[in-house]
Design a protein around this nucleic acid. Sequence first.
DNA 1: CATGAATGAGCCTTCATTCAT
DNA 2: AATGAATGAAGGCTCATTCAT
Lengths: 197, 197, 197, 197
Amino acid sequence: MVSDKVARKMELKKARVLEAAIALFAENGYEATTMADIAKKAEVGFGTVATYFGSKEELFYTCVVQPFQPLIVELKDFNVSPTSYPKEIEAMIRKHIFLFNAQDVYLQLLVQVIGQYEKFPVIFAEINKQTNELQQRLIELIVNGQNEQQLSEGEPLIIAISYISLLFGLCLSSVGNFPKDMLEQFATRAIYLFGVK
Amino acid sequence: MVSDKVARKMELKKARVLEAAIALFAENGYEATTMADIAKKAEVGFGTVATYFGSKEELFYTCVVQPFQPLIVELKDFNVSPTSYPKEIEAMIRKHIFLFNAQDVYLQLLVQVIGQYEKFPVIFAEINKQTNELQQRLIELIVNGQNEQQLSEGEPLIIAISYISLLFGLCLSSVGNFPKDMLEQFATRAIYLFGVK
Amino acid sequence: MVSDKVARKMELKKARVLEAAIALFAENGYEATTMADIAKKAEVGFGTVATYFGSKEELFYTCVVQPFQPLIVELKDFNVSPTSYPKEIEAMIRKHIFLFNAQDVYLQLLVQVIGQYEKFPVIFAEINKQTNELQQRLIELIVNGQNEQQLSEGEPLIIAISYISLLFGLCLSSVGNFPKDMLEQFATRAIYLFGVK
Amino acid sequence: MVSDKVARKMELKKARVLEAAIALFAENGYEATTMADIAKKAEVGFGTVATYFGSKEELFYTCVVQPFQPLIVELKDFNVSPTSYPKEIEAMIRKHIFLFNAQDVYLQLLVQVIGQYEKFPVIFAEINKQTNELQQRLIELIVNGQNEQQLSEGEPLIIAISYISLLFGLCLSSVGNFPKDMLEQFATRAIYLFGVK
DNA sequence: CATGAATGAGCCTTCATTCAT
DNA sequence: AATGAATGAAGGCTCATTCAT
């Protein structure tokens, strides 16, 4: 019989461990991060980490996969047949860029997994599947925009990949994070990729 | 007194070790790659790796820094005040993209270092310095193009960063490498970032 | 929160490890003794040794320095202005020789450190400081004895060094340990060094 | 066919290697001294050391045993039935002490072997055999002196062991070596052990 | 003969995991 | 449930030895 109070405490601790783990995995990578480091940063005993998450591998899995769900939902949240394509695309890009910037620590981690997909095949597959859905949705948007003649010609797949690459590429470059006004400018510039007239 | 024959042989072995190391570091990351793995792949005794490169850390340094020099030289090899900016930029982008694609294994490694710059501060500083020079040269090109009114308005720094980010971002995406015709298309699309009229 | 029972158990194990380490270091020297040997002799996992003492170097330090404190206290425990100098000196020597004999394993270790002082500078400095205090105390005793004309002439420093050298020299010779009656005889003989009339 | 010139050169090199080895073994001990260190100090290629002396163990054996022969001969060179025992003993002790002091590096090495006899059983046996002969000769001297009533009573074995221990003990203490006048004083003091009247 | 490139056995150390409290 | 003492697998590195030149 576990009281709500205790359960609440547990959840808080678990969240603290997860946050610490994400930060350390992002900064140092999988192997260079020790369970003891994580426990210390989360201010729990290191046995506790094992109790909550099982093995280190499972913890890493959770670190990468769990925050990805809400993120991808946000990223996919745009209208694929808006009235004004330029306006919708601009809004989408701005949203994306600010999202990426807000989650920079997590994205540093994500970039590692993507950059070493052979090392994390299971996790990568999961990530990739979802990212492909985002890609599909982008293609849909582009195709519609081109059909409506609000966007200039160009292979939609190429545009979608280029755009996603630009987003992740900006993550790589964002040493010390960009100030807000620069983010705005990146957004404005990225629109060009879509062939907005 | 070392004969030329022996020296030649050594050079060959050294190159073989380096190639193996780059491939394994790129695929698995620094920690997950063992000296034994490298030696095995290079078909030498693992003591030999130590004899050639000292420590694992030094080997990694060499793996990242040594191939970077010729690469960055190639990347910086474009005319900053051409007659036709659109043509020069298109040629440059095509060159860049094909270079990146040809060196995909090495670039996977490079992306790791950039993505975890806190973990490899010395190497990153070296890389970053050179990359900044490339960025400066790009800015020069863009400023000139804008002055000549062959390129539309836009903050040159933002454009340069966006472009470099796109290049590295494409590296991240290039799982299993793109076919040649897709590379051409990426090049064509990337031009848009520069505001070519 | 560690229970007393656990803490007790740990102390016992720690003592067992230390004893094993002293014996093996004494017999084989620092480098020739492996952490695995020590763990095996102490009947613990070899990770445990590291948990308790950190590194091999720290363990060695503890092995040499920790038992030295009580020993030197005992060695310095004599009266520097007794009524009868011959009697006090005889008692002191007997005590010293029996102490050395009782701690023969530890002293074999100590002799190594002294004999290779360049190799163990920090430990040696610590040992040397204390030994010098013993030497000073011996000199005090001798000077007093000479002033009281109970001891014959002779440079006190020379006598003190000779005596200490004799003690350590006997350690070197004591292969398989001397029987008790021989120890008595050594004590009787060593008195001569002090110029007892 | 090896010319004398070449043979001479070899002998010189060999001697240089041996000297370097003794110095390094004495300072750092057997394991902590590497073949490469020795080769470097002797200014020869490290393959050469192996060519000359075979294995490291054989080299160590040579380092300890070879210089011992002439040393022990010198140490045993005293008259066991002199006219004046006090004079003979004084001369002997002075000779011994100056010999020990002159060969301090080698003796540091010797002390290691004696102090860790279990580790070097073969070498120790050899050393011990010869040292016992010295001890026997000392006993002979003492017995004769006592019979002639030039030396006071006392178990000759005890005296001999004490004296040899003192000699080796002084080696241990001689950090930075004693000045000549102190050596004289040690000699004068050591005479007391023999019960010179 | 003299050399040093090549090698792999063996060691210290780190660290994920287990389990008793 | 939470903890950390205990453990041993695994990796980097050192270094004696071998052997081709």
